[in-house]
């Protein structure tokens, strides 16, 4: 039975390399291979994927989704594949480690502020944060807590699914865990969708004017 915490496989110059890091490299390799194979065999398939992502993201963000679809699509594809390879027996999924999910959430955090400053200028962005001045502390707490909840939601979902599978496997190893593993793949892909949608909502809120996000959402 797999441990709750990732194990250190080897150390390079006092830097411990955990098994989730190795499976992250495996995930990256898998995605690259899939892209090359699909581009060689079915030329339109990647175009279908990109246009599907663009359609979904622009349904959330309004019409200005084009500059952000590369970031959000990368997040969606990486998290989806990373959650799904947890179903392969020996491989640990990379999002099983809280360091991976915190890194992904920090990417979203910094890119939200960078894109907001780039769109509205530094003073305009700060003014947008503190538009009614008394909500500024709440806004700051919200910025931090939503980053924390992005990381913890992904980590907790993947970890809980894998632990349920491990417990059932230790009781009845034959056929019973198979539907649970299939459900785990489904929740993994759903979590990738949710992570992407939430990142899109945050970026839309940072880039938009002073009106709330809900009016932007209705437009799409």
């Amino acid at each position: 039975m797999r441990g709750v915490f990732p194990e250190v496989v080897f150390t390079v110059m006092n830097v411990p390399v955990r098994d989730t890091v190795i499976s992250t490299w495996f995930t990256m390799l898998l995605i690259l291979t899939m892209v090359f194979v699909v581009r060689r065999r079915w030329r339109g398939a990647l175009g279908i994927l990109v246009s599907w992502l663009l359609e979904n993201v622009s349904a959330i963000m309004g019409e200005r989704a084009d500059p952000y679809v590369s970031l959000l699509g990368t997040l969606a594809v990486f998290i989806g594949v990373a959650n799904a390879i947890g179903a392969v027996p020996i491989v640990v999924s990379p999002t099983h480690d809280i360091n991976t999910t915190v890194a992904l959430a920090l990417i979203v955090f910094f890119s939200v502020h960078y894109l907001g400053v780039k769109q509205k200028g530094l003073l305009g962005y700060l003014k947008g944060l503190a538009t009614p001045l008394f909500t500024l502390p709440l806004e700051l707490i919200g910025q931090l807590s939503r980053t924390l909840s992005l990381a913890l939601r992904l980590f907790g979902n993947v970890l809980s699914t894998e632990m349920v599978v491990a417990v059932i496997f230790s009781l009845l190893p034959l056929i019973v865990p198979v539907p649970l593993i299939a459900f785990g793949i489904f929740t993994g892909v759903l979590q990738a969708y949710i992570f992407t949608v939430l990142a899109a909502v945050y970026i839309a809120a940072a880039v938009a004017g002073n009106e709330p996000v809900k009016t932007k959402k209705k437009r799409g």
Partner: peptide, 18 residues
């Protein structure tokens, strides 16, 4: 779409407990 997002946010409270 809204249901998925709100379910995720509701679900995260249970995840915190876990």
């Amino acid at each position: 779409a809204t249901l998925f997002i709100s379910m995720a946010i509701l679900e995260s409270t249970a995840i915190y407990v876990l």
